[in-house]
Design a protein around this nucleic acid. Structure first.
Lengths: 120, 120
DNA sequence: AATTTATAACGTATATTTGCGACATAAAAA
DNA sequence: TTTTTATGTCGCAAATATACGTTATAAATT
C-alpha cells in the first residue's frame, strides 16, 4: 500500500488523472475495440460508395445496435454521415483515419524503441 | 428491420459471430483501450530494467487496480512477469509488441487504401 | 392524405469493465 | 520465530458497454 495520497471513493472513469495524449490514444483504441466497429470500417472501405446505415444487413446485429456502433464511430470522427432525404450516407473520414493511424503507430514506436530488454 | 434471420435473445458478447481476424484485432485494441494500461506499457518501456508490480506508485490507482491491468496485459501477452523471490519482475514482450503493431498497422492500411472517397 | 421507408431516440436488460478494500500467501528480513 | 514486504485472490460497488425492441420523426412514395 505504501502511503497513497489518493483517497477517492469514486470508482471508474479516472481517465482525467492521466496524461492528455494517453487519454486520446486510449479513446482511439477503445473506438476500435469491437469487431462490429472494425467490420463497419472495413465495409465502408470496401464499398467505396458511401453507403446508408443499413449496414446492418451485412452484420449479425440488429439495426439498432449497428446504429449505436455507427454513432460511436461518428463521435470519434472516424466516419461521416451526410443526410440525403430520408437516407444517411456514411463514409470514412480519411483525415481522421490517417491521424489515428499515426497516433497508434507513434505509440507502438515509442514503446518499441528499446527491444533489448531481458526479462531474465 | 427487413427480415433478419438472426433471432438470438442473448445480449452482449456476440464476438463469435465475427471473423476471427477481426476478433483478434479487436482484442488487441481493447487491451490498449485504457490510459492506465498505456501508461504501464510506457513505464515499462522507459525503465529499461524490468520493474516489479509496484508500478502503482507511479500511477494514480491502487495497487489492486494496477495489478488487474497488469494481468490484462499479461493475458494478451504484451508483458511478461518473472518471479524473483517475493517480487515479480515485469517487462515488455518485444515479439508480441511487434506482432500487435503490425496487426494494427495492417488494419489501418487495409481500410485506408482507397482515400478518394467523397461523402458528398 | 395515408403509407411506406430510413433513421434516430428512448428505455431496458444483461454483461463487462473499472476500482478498491480486505484477506491470504509466501519469501525475506529482523 | 515474528515481522515486514510484495503479490495475488476474492468479493463488492459503481460505471460502461452491448444488444435489442419499441416508439418517434421526417422525407419520400402511393
Amino acid at each position: 500500500m505504501r502511503h497513497k495520497k489518493f483517497t477517492y471513493k469514486m470508482a471508474y472513469a479516472k481517465t482525467d488523472l492521466f496524461d492528455h495524449k494517453l487519454n486520446s490514444t486510449a479513446v482511439l483504441f477503445k473506438a476500435l475495440a469491437h469487431p462490429a466497429r472494425l467490420a463497419i470500417l472495413q465495409y465502408l472501405a470496401e464499398t467505396k460508395v458511401c453507403i446508408t446505415g443499413d449496414i446492418s444487413d451485412e452484420l449479425p446485429l440488429s439495426r439498432t445496435t449497428v446504429n449505436q456502433h455507427l454513432t460511436e464511430l461518428k463521435n470519434v470522427g472516424l466516419i461521416q454521415g451526410t443526410v440525403d432525404g430520408v437516407k444517411v450516407n456514411y463514409c470514412l473520414n480519411p483525415e481522421k483515419l490517417k491521424e489515428f493511424s499515426e497516433l497508434a503507430t507513434s505509440f507502438f514506436e515509442e514503446i518499441s524503441r528499446q527491444t533489448n530488454i531481458e526479462c531474465k
